[in-house]
Design a protein around this nucleic acid. Sequence first.
DNA 1: GATTTTATTTACAAAAGTGTTGATAAAAAC
DNA 2: GTTTTTATCAACACTTTTGTAAATAAAATC
Lengths: 109, 109
Amino acid sequence: MRGTYLGELEELVLLSVAALVDSAYAVAVRAEIEGRANRKVNISAIHASLYRLEDKGFLDSHMGEATNKRGGKSKRIFTVTTYGYKTLKEAQTVRQSFWGSIPQLSAQK
Amino acid sequence: MRGTYLGELEELVLLSVAALVDSAYAVAVRAEIEGRANRKVNISAIHASLYRLEDKGFLDSHMGEATNKRGGKSKRIFTVTTYGYKTLKEAQTVRQSFWGSIPQLSAQK
DNA sequence: GATTTTATTTACAAAAGTGTTGATAAAAAC
DNA sequence: GTTTTTATCAACACTTTTGTAAATAAAATC
């Protein structure tokens, strides 16, 4: 029941972290989502989502190193756990099972 | 923003209605979900979800005919609207875009 | 060292989704 | 006509997700 499901934003955040591999931090995740899904997201909403996903065991995190760019303070880097990856994949597999039995041609009326 | 997103259950309900074509009513939808996603759902939760999806414009409904089976009172039949189908498809397209850039082999550690 | 920029963190508020209960209804069976 | 079965509907409560605001911190630039 409650706790293992992903919210819509949470799933996008998790997918972004997976796609960004070892350079996933809040700002990059936000850019990733705004680029792929056509949607504005508040940076604090991203942070809140990242922390929640970590609490749930879908993500791990560690502090990265500071860069020599102005304002380049160190970032918190997130990575997808095995459990997170499994959850993501299962959600997608279930949906694909449904799509497999939807008569798409007649549906696109 | 708020209003156009699908909850996790809502998406499964919408996909079920699509897959069931012209025989989608609450009980059948529930069976469909319990069969494909490995998950128990309260029948009233299905009803609530169906009504909400209709309010949002993702579903249409009409009363079907009674059958000559014991307890076979007429069912409310739901169908996916063009808008609902479009929403469903877009959500899936966005996710597939992410999956396309996830290095899956190294991720399945 | 004051300012600007990038970034995190915490706490709270608001919105949305999900679940539960109880009432009602209509059909066939007895 | 009472019972059993299948089904809808409505109201409410609960939980979770999402968004916002304010505080803090660390880097480079000036």
